[in-house]
Design a protein around this nucleic acid. Structure first.
Length: 141
DNA sequence: ATTCTGACTTGCT
DNA sequence: AAGCAAGCCAGAA
């Protein structure tokens, strides 16, 4: 997967405000590139440095294998949740709670949307900078 | 080139 | 509401 893609996904993840979330699929859609699984792959491998708990499954379920740590953050940020948060923190079974997507799903404002659009554009155009006024016609070599 | 796999989604029981 | 199958996208074996 291109390094650019990783950067783009992480960049979007960082834009998500506290107490709000986006699904893997949402991010793929915003970037108009790849799919939910690609975004998931990026988060899995490079997500540790960003607010990864704000990128979840479309169902509202927290990232697989990280439900516990995610819950800590949700409580901290007062993210809207549904279900029995206090019930059985037991391993094995799936958590009995979910993020309330209807209320916590983030809708990028015009400003953020532009920013994301720029990121998406850069993703498809490898070298958007410094080329337009540059007199170099062909890439020699 | 083919097959397997996964921090995913959706639709159908 | 919970489980299952199929679809999907890309990287790895």
């Amino acid at each position: 997967m291109r390094e650019q893609y990783v950067e783009a996904v992480l960049a979007v993840a960082e834009l998500i405000p506290a107490a709000r979330v986006l699904s893997y699929g949402d991010i793929a859609a915003l970037l108009e590139s790849g799919g939910p699984r690609q975004v998931g792959a990026v988060m899995s491998a490079h997500g540790s440095a960003v607010p990864w708990w704000r990128v979840i499954r479309a169902s509202g379920a927290a990232p697989a294998f990280h439900e516990g740590r995610a819950l800590v953050h949700y409580r901290e940020e007062q993210t809207a949740l549904r279900g029995d948060v206090d019930a059985a923190p037991v391993g094995g079974r799936a958590p009995s709670w979910r993020v309330d997507m209807a209320h916590a799903r983030w809708n990028p404002g015009e400003r953020e949307f532009d920013l994301i659009d720029t990121i998406a554009a850069r993703l498809q155009n490898p070298a958007p900078v410094a080329t337009m006024s540059d007199p170099h016609d062909g890439l020699d070599a």
